[in-house]
């Protein structure tokens, strides 16, 4: 039990898995953020039909577990003729899933801006795209930054699910090591520690941003 040799020997392998985890999370976070902003803008400024379809999308995605979406994408995507490499398949699913949560965060940021900001921008004769670009979005995104970062932490943790559909990253790497060494306790603690380092660093950054938002205005 107390023998941590298996963990020490396999640590470089786990670190390579962690590299894959970070790569996957970062690759998914970018389209998730873009889609999240677009969904938030559609929900705030769109006409009734657009708004209703965004709300339906949010309800659907937020009511179904990510694991269900991942598993069925694994079975369904090949059937529908979309021939993506597995990495891009799971990145796509994770991005679509997290975009729903991010859009809520961005929407809250946009709606929490005081009315005076809108009035002032309109009073200066700005067109709506210009107003969004230089007045609304910069402030809204700053307000949304702390909850956005905690969503990113959640996204990093969620990448562990792709090991269930057979992709290789930190969780899969640790399972492989466990199968070889039969030391689940030590190896999973090691994998957990690596996840903790990644996520805690992000969380600390989020807290730093939060302090800046609270005291910056």
């Amino acid at each position: 039990m107390n023998n941590f040799n298996p963990l020490i020997h396999s640590f470089p392998y786990l670190l390579r898995g962690a590299g894959m985890t970070v790569l996957m999370a970062a690759t998914a976070a970018i389209p998730a953020t873009v889609l999240g902003v677009v969904l938030a803008l559609l929900q705030v400024f769109g006409n009734r039909i657009l708004r209703a379809s965004v709300i339906a999308y949010l309800l659907l995605v937020r009511g179904i577990p990510l694991l269900v979406l991942l598993t069925f994408a694994y079975y369904l995507l090949p059937l529908t003729g979309i021939d993506l490499p597995p990495f891009w398949g799971v990145v796509l699913v994770i991005a679509c899933y997290y975009a729903a949560f991010m859009s809520e965060v961005f929407r809250a940021g946009i709606l929490s801006l005081p009315q005076a900001q809108w009035d002032a921008a309109r009073g200066l004769g700005m067109t709506r795209p210009l107003m969004l670009k230089i007045v609304i979005l910069p402030q809204a995104l700053r307000l949304a930054a702390p909850p956005y970062v905690s969503l990113c932490v959640s996204l990093v943790k969620a990448t562990s699910l792709v090991s269930i559909v057979g992709l290789w990253e930190l969780t899969m790497a640790s399972r492989e090591v466990v199968e070889r060494t039969l030391a689940p306790f030590q190896v999973f603690i090691g994998a957990g520690a690596i996840y903790f380092c990644i996520c805690y660093a992000l969380a600390l950054y989020g807290r730093h941003l939060e302090r800046r938002v609270l005291h910056g205005h």
Partner: peptide
Amino acid sequence: RNTPLLIQMYLVYFGFSMG
């Protein structure tokens, strides 16, 4: 909060049975 649920589950399920 900063480690995945899946790892915690594996730790409890496989780790405890090993112990």
